[in-house]
Amino acid sequence: MMLTTTILFYVFSAILLVSALLVITARNPVYSALYLVLAFFNAAALFLLLGAEFLGLILILVYVGAVMVLFLFVVMMLDINLERLKEGFLRYLPLGLAIAIVGVLEMVAVFWTAPIGRVPAPGPIPANADNTRALGELLYTHYLYPFEIAAVILLVAIIAAIALTLRRRPDTKSQAVGKQVAVAVRERLRMVDLRGPKP
């Protein structure tokens, strides 16, 4: 059983790493997005192996089911010019490298202070553990305020995003469905008496 889990872990991690690499090397943006979806699936599988089922499925629901679908929706309809995107690659290269080095150093620092071997192994999981319930109880008691603040920040972000993209365009014509439905017969139909005078 332990061996199977280990093998599965390495299989999923390998696919995860390869697909993450392919996200940035794929030439077609649609393929890039699809490789990212594959990476999310493998990350979810890793969560499942850890026994964190809720996190794994939420990862799929939120990132695969909502975020990446919207991404693909936009990418699919755009005719993206790769030459334009590659313009200025050399100019931004030093900055990109600097950021990458900082990121790598940060990760090294984290591993230095807590090497992988010394991270305590998770304790045995109790027989009828329900990690959805456990997460919920922790979020709504101990971490209530951070949770609520995060929710408010997300709400503000949603409103800001809508406010940024919502613009009234007076020159376009569209139908007001409510008005169409609310129309009564007498507003549209006038009965005219067409009987002529008697000869």
Partner: peptide, 17 residues
């Protein structure tokens, strides 16, 4: 399975793909 309902929702997002 304690989160079967979520599995069905996740599969329906796979269907979209």
């Amino acid at each position: 399975w304690e989160i079967g309902l979520l599995l069905i929702l996740a599969l329906s997002s796979l269907h979209v793909y």
